Simulated assay, not measured.
Amino acid sequence: MQVTIDKNSGYCFGVEFAIQMAEDELAHEETLYCLGDIVHNRMEVERLHQRGLCIIDREQLADLHDCKVLIRAHGEPPETYALALRNNLELIDASCPVVLKLQNRVKHAFDLSQRQDGQIVIYGQPGHAEVAGLTGQTGNRAIIVMTEADLDQIDFARPVTLFSQTTKSTAGFYKMKGLIEARIAAAGGALESFDANDSICRQVSNREPQLAKFATLHDVIIFVSGRKSSNGKALFSVVQQFNARSYFVENETELEDEWFAGAQSVGICGATSTPLWLMQQVQARIEAVGELV
């Protein structure tokens, strides 16, 4: 049985940058605080915890003073930086450049919409760290949508500017765009007042066609990702469309031997938050199953 790891899977630039910054700091610091999981992958969080990375939430952040705190790739809203100044915190800012650029675009669009009685709409997962950072650019006045029902929050008689969380599905974004256009037309509004911005990271969107092709080349696909990963959920849905024998696992302990019955070729792939070392551990476990068959 041949087992192949997808060469296009694994960390995107933003995640790799954040992990490297954490490791660089931990090389000479016993403890480094990180606001939220540094990456949506439990195995990698546990690995870095063993090296001294301490995950904290916003309430714990408010109680910290005179220490270093890592800002992860997802970015943060303005109030986090204001708190850091008050508490004399040194921020190790690993915000992804793509996310920072989007935050600036959202802030500019919000300022403009204030003069035009417009609305900022973000296609994204409520409560997600990146979405919190984006809505923070609007004073938390942006409308977050994930489903068609969420569109009921929008006043379609007023201008609408749409952005996307960078890790969402491209197909999902354009479906939402179409639904909004239909609602505007039904309300008798002007489509000229609707500005849709495809702000999905191309490192994410480019993986969709690559994964679709990879999924067709193997009898079985094992998709490795943390269950909290928004990107992982989106990419796994792509894999499932092209290979019915696709399975989602967090690590090698979740593999089932019967998944590989009769398989000659197994493909391993993952999210932008999936480390290569974890996919290699999954590969080793599958190869061991193959030797027993």
Rank of each mutant, 00 (worst) to 15 (best):
R72T: 01
D63L: 15
A234T: 04
G172Q: 09
I268K: 02
N231C: 11
L179H: 08
L89T: 07
V249D: 06
Q116Y: 07
V15W: 03
G36I: 06
G139M: 11
V145M: 11
F223A: 07
E287Y: 04
E130A: 09
K177R: 15
M146L: 13
N41H: 06
N8R: 10
N104W: 01
Y174F: 15
R86M: 04
D219L: 01
N140S: 09
R47A: 15
M146P: 00
I56Y: 08
G133H: 10
E79P: 00
C34Q: 05
V131R: 03
H65Q: 12
F214E: 08
W277C: 13
Y174C: 01
A22W: 03
G52L: 07
R72Q: 08
I122W: 07
H28M: 01
Q281N: 14
A18D: 08
E254W: 06
G118E: 10
M1C: 08
H128K: 13
E79A: 05
Q103S: 11
R207A: 08
R115W: 03
A73Q: 02
M21Q: 14
G262D: 02
G232E: 05
K213D: 14
V160E: 12
T4L: 02
L292I: 06
V220D: 00
P77C: 11
C54Y: 06
A142V: 04
E59A: 05
I92F: 04
Q60T: 06
F110L: 03
D63K: 15
A284C: 02
G136I: 05
T167E: 10
S169R: 03
I56G: 04
S95E: 13
L32D: 11
R72A: 03
Y33E: 10
F223C: 06
W277L: 13
V3A: 05
C54N: 12
V220R: 01
K7S: 04
I55C: 13
L61Y: 11
N41T: 03
A157H: 10
G172I: 11
L64N: 08
S237T: 12
E76S: 10
I56P: 01
N197I: 04
Q114D: 06
C96T: 03
A94M: 01
L217G: 04
F223Y: 08
A288K: 08
Q60D: 09
R158L: 14
N197V: 11
D63Q: 15
Q165N: 13
K168W: 11
Q20F: 01
I221G: 01
D219I: 00
D6G: 03
Y123Q: 03
N140F: 14
G124S: 14
G290Q: 09
R227Q: 12
G75E: 05
I19H: 02
Y123H: 14
V224T: 13
Q103F: 05
M21L: 14
Q203S: 09
G127A: 05
E254N: 03
H65S: 09
F248C: 08
D150M: 13
K107S: 14
F17G: 00
R183P: 01
K177W: 04
M176D: 07
H40A: 02
S199T: 15
Q119I: 05
Q114G: 15
L89C: 07
D117L: 14
Q153H: 13
V238M: 10
G75A: 02
E148T: 11
